[in-house]
Amino acid sequence: MGVQSTVASLWRYPVKSCRGESLERVVVEPWGVAQDRRWMVVDPAGTMVTARELNRLLVVHPTLTDDGLRLTAPGAPAVDVPVPDPAGQVPIAIWSSRLTAADAGDGAAAWLTEVLGRDVRLVHLDDPRRRPTSPTYSEPDDRVSLADGYPLLLTTAASAEAVSVAAGALVPMHRYRPNLVVEGTQAWAEDSWRRFRIGDVTFRVVKGCARCVMTTMEPDHDAGSVARGPEPTRTLARLRRFGKGVWFGVNVIPDHPLPAGATIAVGDPVEVLEAVEPGTRPIGS
C-alpha cells in the first residue's frame, strides 16, 4: 500500500503581497481560505500594487483582529485598521478584473505610504461574489477574492524538494506563497490531478501556475529588507519551462455546493478522485 498523502501546511495572506501566516486549520469558502487576500494595496487610481514592483510589501506583517487588521513593519509603530464601511466603495483594478472595494481610510493610507515610500491606499473586498474567476479555466459561478486568479494555490513538498535538489540549495516553500501544501506524493504529481478531496471539501484543479519574480525574493522580517536572487526561476527554467512560462503548483477551486463552515486541517488525508496520465503538462501551459 502506498504512502497516504496528507496536508503538510496551510497558509493565509490577509493582505495581498504582504507577509503570510501558517495555520493549523482553516475554513474554506467558495472563493478560498476564509480571510485570505481580502485586503489589497492600491495606487491612487485604484490599481493593485504588489511585491513584484514594490518588494518591501513582503515585510509588512498583517494580523487579523476582531475589528479588522493590525499592520506592523520593522521601524514603524503598529497601526490598527478597522474593517471599512462597505458603503464607501471605490473602483479597483486587479489584472483584468474591474470591480469595487471599500477604502480603508486615510490612516491606513498614510501608514503604508510612509513604510513603503510610495503613495498608496488600502482597500477591503467586503463581498468576494463581485469577482468572477477567469472564464477560460472555470465555471460561470466560480468566484475569487483578491488572489491573482483563483481561490487557492496548491503545492507539494516533493516538487519543492525536487527544485531545491536541482538548484543545489534550499528554496523554502514560503517563496511560492501557497495556501495548501501536500506531502506524501511524487514530485509533480499535482500536474495530473483533476479532482481531490480533503475532509468534506472537494476541489477541482483548473490551471497550472506560471511563476513570476516574487518567488526569487527572500524577506528579512527583522531587518525589514528583501533580498533577490536567481532561484528558483533559474532552476524552474531548466525543469519546468513550458511555452513562455515556468510552472510550479496548481490553482484549485472548491466544488459547489460547499458545506457551510467546511474546514481542513494539517494532517488531513488527501484523496485524489480524478487524475490523468502522470507526466502530463500543467493545464494552461
Score class of each variant (00 low, 15 high):
9 S>Y: 02
10 L>F: 12
13 Y>L: 14
16 K>H: 01
19 R>I: 00
20 G>N: 07
21 E>Q: 12
22 S>V: 14
23 L>N: 04
24 E>Q: 14
25 R>I: 10
35 Q>M: 06
35 Q>L: 04
38 R>A: 06
39 W>S: 05
42 V>C: 12
44 P>R: 08
46 G>E: 05
51 A>P: 00
54 L>E: 01
58 L>K: 15
59 V>L: 03
59 V>D: 07
60 V>N: 11
61 H>P: 01
62 P>A: 13
64 L>Y: 01
70 R>F: 09
72 T>Q: 15
76 A>F: 14
79 V>L: 15
81 V>Y: 11
92 I>W: 10
95 W>E: 05
98 R>A: 14
102 A>W: 02
104 A>S: 13
108 A>K: 09
109 A>H: 02
115 V>E: 09
123 V>M: 06
123 V>Q: 02
123 V>A: 09
123 V>F: 11
124 H>F: 13
124 H>A: 03
130 R>T: 12
131 R>Y: 06
131 R>Q: 04
135 P>I: 02
141 D>R: 13
141 D>V: 02
144 V>A: 05
145 S>V: 07
147 A>M: 11
147 A>V: 09
150 Y>M: 07
152 L>W: 03
153 L>C: 13
154 L>K: 05
156 T>K: 13
164 S>F: 15
166 A>I: 07
171 V>Q: 13
172 P>Q: 04
179 N>Y: 14
183 E>L: 02
185 T>G: 07
187 A>E: 08
188 W>Q: 06
196 F>R: 06
197 R>N: 04
198 I>F: 14
207 K>C: 00
208 G>Y: 10
209 C>H: 14
216 T>S: 13
224 G>I: 06
226 V>E: 02
227 A>V: 04
240 R>M: 00
248 F>N: 09
249 G>L: 05
250 V>Q: 15
250 V>G: 00
253 I>Y: 08
265 A>G: 10
267 G>Y: 08
268 D>M: 06
271 E>W: 04
272 V>P: 10
274 E>T: 12
274 E>H: 12
282 P>K: 01
284 G>V: 01
